[in-house]
Nucleic acid binder design. Sequence first.
DNA 1: TGTCTATGAATGAATG
DNA 2: CATTCATTCATAGACA
Lengths: 81, 81
Amino acid sequence: MHCKQSNTRWLPTRDQIRILKELYDDKGVKCPTVEQVQRITLQLKWYGEIENKNVFYWFQNQRAREKLKNNKLTSDVQVPK
Amino acid sequence: MHCKQSNTRWLPTRDQIRILKELYDDKGVKCPTVEQVQRITLQLKWYGEIENKNVFYWFQNQRAREKLKNNKLTSDVQVPK
DNA sequence: TGTCTATGAATGAATG
DNA sequence: CATTCATTCATAGACA
C-alpha cells in the first residue's frame, strides 16, 4: 500500500480502474445489481481500500458520463438550420 | 452560500433540511401521509420555495437511501467471528 | 500557486 | 418501494 491518503475521497488504484473498465467495456456490466457491486468490491479490495459505495458510484458515473458524451457527439453532428 | 441557481430543481435551504431531518430522525416521521406532506410543505415555505412533491420525494429518497446504506452499501465485509 | 479538467460524491427527480 | 437517471458540488492532479 503505497499511498495512504487521508480520509478524503476514494482514489482508485490502477488495477481497480483496469478491472472496473474491463467489466464495463468488455463484459458489458453497465448496471450491476447491489449484490454484484458487493462482489466486485470484495474483489477490488485486494488491490486497495474500497467500499461498496465507491463501486456503486463508479458505475453510476460511468453510465451518466457515457451518455453525456454520446449526446454531445450526436448533437455536434446536428447542423442548426 | 446560496448562489442563484437556474430554476431547474429544488434546492433545499439549510433550514428546510434541518427541519426535514428533525422530522425524520428525531420525530420518526419516515413516511408522512399526503396531508402531513402538505402541512410540512406549508411550514417549509416560510424558509423558501418548495412544493409538495419536493417534500414527497425527499422522504422517499431518505427511506430508500437509509435502507441502501444499512443493508448494502455501507456494510463492511462481515468477518465471521 | 491559481486555473482547469477529470472524476468521486451527493441528491432531486423520475421510472419500473 | 427498489432502482436508475440527471444534474450539480467537491476536489485530486495536471499544467502553466
